[in-house]
């Protein structure tokens, strides 16, 4: 592929290329031998979904399974006993649960050994946590459905109508989902370009979701399950009433003022996207053009500062 011409598309492609090495072991309770089986090692894209990896894990581990006939969609993954939502992109799960410090961005530490890699996960083929995880299906339709819903929502937020996504023809929609399944940028990019640049429509709102550690809830009737997070979203316009552009800092200060009392300097918490700390001064629209996940959303985790 020819190198992208401008910075935006170069960044877009870098984000697309981000990946995380995974070391996946079979849960002991599902393993036929007393000793642990060999781990499955894979360099997996940050923007892809663990749900797409399940069939491969099933065939890899089938010879070690106590019940080799178990359906692939009985499988689920966990990290430190936290069931992982397979319809969240891997990068989001990593930023939420890996426990590693996010990359500080400015003060580079390129040479430093990356701690916490590979990311060690468990795959289970029994005791599906149905109360916490949506069950996969043989044809992968749930994942497709959840993905398309996310794409539609992001589109609706950006344009204030659902017309752009609706105007994609059948081939375009198929190509979009195929690009995700195959993790193929040259399939993805043209469709993404159409979605981000609808004709005659101004950008209305930014598709931002914030993932907060579930420390405090007002109404603690139910014990929060391990690893549960609070997902927040709000209508975030691209430009403030003062006509200055919306930055990460101004957006977070509006959404969660207690965690982001300052619009410029993180004091209590810091926002993390694709494993890196987001500077609060970054323009949100720039982020939208370069750094969204493949469903069009900026899935930003919030990491408390020690």
């Amino acid at each position: 592929m020819t190198p992208p011409r401008d910075v935006t598309s170069r960044l877009r492609q870098s984000v697309w290329n981000g990946s995380i090495p995974l070391e996946i072991r079979l849960h002991k309770g599902d393993c036929i031998t007393y000793d642990e089986s060999e781990p499955y090692l894979v360099q997996f894209p940050r923007l892809s979904y663990l749900g797409l990896l399940i069939p491969k894990l099933h065939s890899f581990f089938s010879r070690n399974l106590i019940y080799p006939d178990v359906d692939p969609f009985e499988a689920w993954l966990s990290c430190d006993n936290v069931p992982l939502k397979w319809h969240y992109p891997l990068g989001l799960l990593y930023d939420l649960y890996s426990g590693t410090e996010p990359h500080p961005g400015e003060g580079r530490k390129e040479d430093a050994e990356q701690p916490g890699l590979p990311w060690r996960l468990r795959v289970h083929f029994s005791d599906y946590p149905t109360e916490q995880l949506i069950k996969l299906d043989a044809a992968g339709k749930h994942l497709h459905d959840l993905y398309i819903n996310g794409v539609k929502e992001a589109d609706y937020l950006r344009n204030g109508t659902g017309k752009t996504i609706m105007s994609l023809n059948k081939d375009d929609s198929t190509q979009l989902w195929e690009s995700v399944k195959q993790h193929n940028f040259s399939l993805f990019n043209p469709i993404n370009h159409k979605l981000l640049n609808p004709q005659g429509v101004n950008l209305r709102h930014m598709p931002i979701k914030l993932y907060l550690p579930h420390a405090s809830t007002e109404n603690q009737k139910e014990e929060p399950t391990p690893g549960s997070v609070r997902v927040m979203q709000a209508l975030v316009p691209p430009v403030l009433s003062s006509r200055s552009p919306q930055t990460v800092g101004t957006a977070l200060n509006t959404m969660v003022p207690t965690l982001f009392p300052s619009r410029r300097i993180p004091t209590v918490a810091q926002p993390v996207l694709h494993g890196a700390v987001l500077p609060l001064t970054v323009n949100v629209e720039d982020l939208l053009r370069t750094s969204t996940y493949s469903d069009g959303w900026l899935h930003i985790t919030v990491s408390m500062m020690s």
């Binding site: 949506i134 339709k141 959840l146 997902v231």
Partner: peptide
């Protein structure tokens, strides 16, 4: 994709 009624995570409980 699979009908007008499907499964998602509840916005408050984050459970299916």
């Amino acid at each position: 994709v699979m009908g007008g009624i499907t499964i998602t995570d509840h916005p408050v409980t984050n459970s299916p």
